[in-house]
Design a binder for these strands. Structure first.
Length: 94
DNA sequence: AATGAGGCCCTAA
DNA sequence: ATTAGGGCCTCAT
């Protein structure tokens, strides 16, 4: 399999249904690197999947905290709420 | 509850 | 080939 880590991440994130979210750890596990949670974030930020159609705003931290976003946390929260995700006190309701 | 420190993994230049 | 950075995670104090 020539699938790069990055590609897997894209695929997983792309497959996140609307109104749903995943944590970096979940994604990392799905791609086969439970400890690459950091890499996932890095990829989503640098590779900026959103430019390729990757809703990186649907990925949050394992604590339910929002984490970060290229455009800022607020934008992320806003987008999430728009998609149907409920945010409570800076955290996501799973 | 908040902070510090360490650990693991990737991408880009 | 190497360096530096990063949207993290978890434990301990």
């Amino acid at each position: 399999m020539v699938t790069s880590f990055r590609k897997k991440v894209y695929d997983v994130v792309k497959k996140i249904p609307k109104g749903k979210i995943l944590t970096y750890k979940e994604v990392a596990e799905k791609v086969g690197r439970p400890k690459a949670c950091r890499a996932v974030g890095s990829i989503l930020n640098k590779s900026v999947g959103w430019r390729k159609g990757i809703p990186c705003h649907r990925v949050v931290r394992s604590d339910g905290n929002i984490g970060g976003y290229n455009k800022g946390e607020k934008t992320k929260v806003y987008l999430l709420e728009k998609e149907g995700v409920i945010i409570q006190k800076r955290k996501v309701v799973r």
